[in-house]
Amino acid sequence: MASGLNEEEIEMQEDYRNKALPSSRSPAEAKGGVTPAVPGRKLLRVVAVSFGLLCVLQAALNIYLRFTLMLGCPLGWHKFQSSCYYFSISKKNWKESRQECLLRGANLVIINNRGEQAFLKGLHDLFWIGLSDLDNEGQWRWVDGTGLTDGAWAPGEPNNANGGEDCAEFDKRYDAFNDAGCSLERYSVCEKLMS
């Protein structure tokens, strides 16, 4: 033999070349071809998804706070001069409307001037305002206790028709106030001063 290798050495080298390298896969994995989940990988996915959701929530909160601070009014409220206004989306009687405003940290709107009245005019045809003579008939007071000094009443109003019109509504047809029965259901406007 010129190469200096005997037959046994050649066979050993060939056997060594044809053997599969040791694998980290179990015999079951090798047969089925499916790699089982690595312990902790599922937990890692849950943590990653949770973190992603937290990021989305944080971004939404940041946007909400930015708008609130920029505009000075909470989302869903409208700014005019130094007040925030909430326009109801359902009809309620005067007392329920006032209660809804109080729950929102506000009160039924007090119309202080013609500019504010013009701003509110673009809403519903009829809506409750924070004016009534519930305590003393004929003495109209705003919900903050101040008396009505310059009211823009509709022609012939307040007339206390049928002896039971103790709450005031804004009537868009006349661009003025009207006295109405407090049990009637109307939209309403809540007002709160900007903080």
Rank of each mutant, 00 (worst) to 15 (best):
residue 139 Q to W: 12
residue 69 L to M: 10
residue 141 R to G: 01
residue 8 E to T: 14
residue 193 L to R: 12
residue 22 P to A: 03
residue 93 N to Q: 06
residue 90 S to D: 13
residue 64 Y to E: 10
residue 52 G to N: 03
residue 17 R to Y: 15
residue 171 D to P: 00
residue 30 A to F: 10
residue 140 W to N: 02
residue 143 V to S: 06
residue 117 Q to C: 00
residue 10 I to R: 07
residue 105 G to L: 05
residue 48 A to L: 10
residue 133 D to M: 02
residue 77 W to R: 13
residue 102 L to E: 13
residue 141 R to Y: 02
residue 19 K to W: 11
residue 119 F to Q: 12
residue 141 R to H: 12
residue 84 C to F: 12
residue 10 I to H: 04
residue 58 Q to N: 05
residue 148 L to Y: 01
residue 21 L to R: 13
residue 144 D to F: 05
residue 15 D to P: 00
residue 92 K to A: 09
residue 124 H to S: 08
residue 155 P to E: 09
residue 5 L to W: 03
residue 134 L to W: 05
residue 110 I to A: 00
residue 41 R to K: 09
residue 132 S to T: 14
residue 161 A to N: 14
residue 124 H to F: 03
residue 41 R to M: 06
residue 19 K to M: 12
residue 8 E to A: 10
residue 192 K to V: 15
residue 33 G to Q: 06
residue 54 L to I: 09
residue 158 P to D: 01
residue 98 R to S: 15
residue 183 S to E: 14
residue 156 G to W: 12
residue 22 P to Q: 04
residue 43 L to Q: 09
residue 166 D to H: 07
residue 166 D to F: 10
residue 62 N to T: 03
residue 123 L to Y: 14
residue 89 I to C: 04
residue 40 G to R: 03
residue 114 R to L: 07
residue 180 A to I: 01
residue 155 P to C: 04
residue 107 N to K: 06
residue 113 N to D: 15
residue 176 A to I: 01
residue 81 Q to N: 15
residue 121 K to M: 10
residue 43 L to I: 07
residue 125 D to Q: 09
residue 23 S to N: 04
residue 151 G to L: 11
residue 194 M to W: 07
residue 193 L to C: 00
residue 92 K to F: 02
residue 60 A to R: 09
residue 37 A to T: 07
residue 173 R to S: 15
residue 31 K to G: 02
residue 26 S to F: 07
residue 157 E to C: 11
residue 46 V to F: 08
residue 111 I to C: 07
residue 190 C to Q: 05
residue 108 L to R: 09
residue 178 N to I: 07
residue 2 A to G: 10
residue 171 D to F: 08
residue 76 G to V: 00
residue 182 C to S: 15
residue 34 V to D: 00
residue 90 S to P: 00
residue 122 G to Q: 11
residue 21 L to I: 03
residue 119 F to R: 08
residue 50 S to P: 02
residue 136 N to D: 06
residue 131 L to T: 07
residue 111 I to E: 09
residue 127 F to D: 08
residue 71 L to R: 15
residue 142 W to L: 01
residue 147 G to H: 05
residue 22 P to F: 03
residue 127 F to L: 06
residue 83 S to M: 04
residue 88 S to R: 04
residue 108 L to E: 01
residue 165 E to M: 13
residue 23 S to H: 12
residue 17 R to F: 10
residue 168 A to D: 05
residue 55 C to N: 10
residue 96 E to Y: 08
residue 102 L to C: 02
residue 157 E to N: 06
residue 160 N to M: 01
residue 148 L to A: 04
residue 105 G to P: 08
residue 151 G to S: 04
residue 136 N to C: 00
residue 42 K to E: 06
residue 124 H to Y: 13
residue 34 V to S: 03
residue 133 D to Q: 01
residue 46 V to L: 08
residue 101 C to G: 07
residue 61 L to I: 01
residue 79 K to Q: 14
residue 101 C to L: 10
residue 134 L to E: 12
residue 187 Y to K: 09
residue 193 L to F: 10
residue 112 N to K: 03
residue 45 R to F: 01
residue 43 L to H: 08
residue 64 Y to A: 01
residue 148 L to E: 13
residue 40 G to C: 02
residue 102 L to N: 04
residue 118 A to H: 09
residue 7 E to F: 14
residue 52 G to M: 11
residue 123 L to H: 14
residue 70 M to L: 12
residue 153 W to C: 02
residue 100 E to I: 00
residue 188 S to Y: 15
residue 189 V to I: 09
residue 63 I to L: 15
residue 171 D to K: 06
residue 162 N to V: 04
residue 170 F to N: 03
residue 137 E to R: 11
residue 60 A to N: 05
residue 185 E to N: 14
residue 27 P to I: 00
residue 121 K to P: 02
